[in-house]
Design a binder for these strands. Structure first.
Lengths: 244, 244
DNA sequence: GTGGTCCAATGGTCCAACCAATTCCTGCAT
DNA sequence: ATGCAGGAATTGGTTGGACCATTGGACCAC
């Protein structure tokens, strides 16, 4: 017998019910990400549950990154919701050491390469133009400020993830990017960190514009490899300085 | 001015502090997954916070799958915790439909290819022998039972992830695998689902044994492509049958 | 305009009680 | 002794009400 044919009965599931109702509300009102949803007090009154129960439900959504709560202001939708969402919370035991950064980077290499390939397959002319725009901004920032800019660089890559047509790429890499962000400035004391990756941004774009998935994948792999090299260089330097 | 030089200050972070304290407690007591942690009332008293605050913190952990709460029994640890965990809650819109499966598969293709390449770089002779063993088991199961076996196939791939030296690969793919396990059996009614992927398991192994990262990556990409084709075939079939 | 003050709205925290599920122990019947 | 019904204690789930801290806008003096 399929054990799935007899799911456990639900006697009480207050907060789940609250979330279900909230999904219905968001869809009924056609709320977009960024908009504010009703106050906890109003929700509690309307749904005939305690405010604490509402809060537990919202806490869960906050943990999933679906809403953001701002004291004194309200609760705001952060992502689109749908009745049949699947949640896949991953918790990775990792630290701030060299090994963790390297492992994270390997994941990013995998996803970056695939996203670039998919992007080259699926990009419309408008998409390609948008990526070109982000590339220009990034290159100008590079020349003006004499170095890689986290912000504009990140925008460029995000554009690629978005055009790939698969939101999971952006979600996963965004989570890792947050972890990386503090080191992105001057990781491990390497001054020109990221310089070597600069030219590959344009080559990736060119392969995408040429609708060449294999080429885009190859260039993305090269880009991440330069970052890995920078990281290794920094680690070696750190090891050396600790020996003195 | 670097906008990072003025980060937002943190005035209150009660529940975060609770979780931090809880991490310390778990490590101090060397609690293993499955063990019970103190009751909410005791935690509230010890930490000098309200029980509500404790509950909000535990709700977050429950959402992340770190603990399990059983009414009348207690709260139990479900996974190892560490001070510097990285949380990556993924949400895929749409549940069991074709699009979700496809998007998940694209992520898997990215990770599978990279894991195979890293595996080819780093595998020791013992590692290669282990993978060969898993491959033999899988191939025998295929011939005996006249079809792909989820179990043995999964074991083979897991072995590759493990040898890649990066635990993140296995963690991420395992989360997705668990989520879609029910569909891996006969997804969308395609009988011989996965048959086409069979020969590529051996070719991947051969490229790994030959220490050929590029080749291993290419073979892994081919393997996932066959699965994608199967999926598309199933979707087309479904669409056709729904039109009658 | 600029800056300051006040105030209402809103999320954050706290408390005390009760409900519901679970666990465990007691005591009775066998 | 054994087994089992039944109740008491434990524990998470829910409720209602209160107060605190932050926000953002309205209003005002300069």
């Amino acid at each position: 017998m399929d054990q799935n044919s007899l799911p456990p009965i639900q006697t009480t599931a207050r907060d789940d019910a609250v979330l279900k109702a909230l999904v219905g509300f968001v869809r009924a009102e056609a709320l977009q990400p960024g908009e504010r949803l009703p106050t906890e007090r109003i929700l509690a009154e309307r749904l005939k549950v305690s405010r604490n129960t509402v809060r537990e439900a919202l806490t869960r959504w906050e943990g999933l990154g679906l809403v953001e709560r701002r004291q004194g202001s309200g609760t705001y939708l952060k992502a689109a919701v749908s009745p049949d969402m699947l949640h896949m919370p991953l918790t990775l035991a990792g630290g701030n050491d060299f090994t963790s950064l390297m492992q994270t980077l390997e994941i990013r290499r995998a996803l970056e390469a695939e996203a670039a390939a998919l992007c080259a397959e699926r990009a419309s002319q408008a998409d390609i133009a948008e990526i070109a725009r982000k590339l220009d901004i990034m290159e100008q920032a590079f020349r003006t400020r004499e170095g890689m800019s986290s912000e504009e660089d990140w925008e460029f890559h995000q554009a690629i993830y978005r055009v790939s047509g698969n939101p999971l790429f952006e979600q996963i890499i965004a989570a890792m990017h947050e972890l990386f962000h503090r080191f992105w400035e001057h990781p491990l004391g390497v001054r020109d960190f990221g310089h070597a990756s600069f030219p590959y941004h344009r080559t990736i774009y060119e392969r995408i514009a040429a609708r060449d998935p294999q080429g885009a994948r190859a260039e993305a792999l090269k880009l991440i490899s330069t970052v890995e090299d920078d990281l290794k260089r920094g680690a070696a330097k750190l090891k050396l300085s600790s020996q003195t």
